[in-house]
């Protein structure tokens, strides 16, 4: 039996490259309709919060996809180490915190990853930057590869 996979896009679609995670999931939804033999679920939200610990609990593999302002090339896929410390502001939590909460509260340990997509601009209502568009395509190919790979160790 294949493992249960969740691809979870994070971001604000009204803020230029901040939409990258959401747009990747939209693109993947369309692709999954054309390729029903590939089994994966998707979700998306502005930001993560505590209830996402329950959302990921029943999956074997989870990828959080988010725009990144860090110094990366185009994309970076990395395994998430659960974070059991407080590392959040008032109404937002990091993927590592969600994973830690899932372990702590629900005793479930899905293999979780974060796909960072390099982002450049975050203005209101503007389209993706050219760099953002290019990186979205690269990220999409990475997600398709991920869906067809055995679990990373």
């Amino acid at each position: 039996m294949s493992d249960r996979i969740l691809i979870y896009g994070i971001g604000n679609p009204g803020r230029q490259d901040d939409a990258l995670g959401i747009l990747l999931v939209d693109k993947l939804d369309a692709w999954l309709k054309e390729n029903p033999h590939v089994r994966a679920e998707t979700d998306q939200n502005y930001q993560l919060n505590i209830e996402d610990a329950d959302r990921i609990a029943d999956f074997d593999r989870v990828v959080f996809v988010d725009a990144s302002v860090h110094d990366i090339e185009s994309t970076l896929l990395e395994k998430i180490v659960p974070d059991f410390r407080s590392d959040f502001s008032m109404h937002y939590v990091e993927p590592s915190f969600v994973v830690g909460l899932c372990h702590q509260v629900f005793d479930r340990k899905p293999a979780c990853y974060q796909l960072h997509i390099k982002a450049y601009e975050f203005e209101f209502m503007k389209p993706l930057t050219e760099g953002g568009k290019k990186n979205l395509e690269i990220a999409f190919k990475e997600i398709l590869d991920f869906l067809q790979q055995a679990p990373m160790v």
């Binding site: 505590i50 410390r85 959040f88 830690g100 909460l101 702590q104 509260v105």
Partner: peptide
């Protein structure tokens, strides 16, 4: 934070997550 809460009072932490 709520992780520490989960260690101290797991039921309360679960309720918080599920009510949200």
């Amino acid at each position: 934070n709520v992780l520490a809460l989960a260690l101290e009072n797991k039921d309360l932490a679960v309720q918080g997550v599920m009510m949200r």
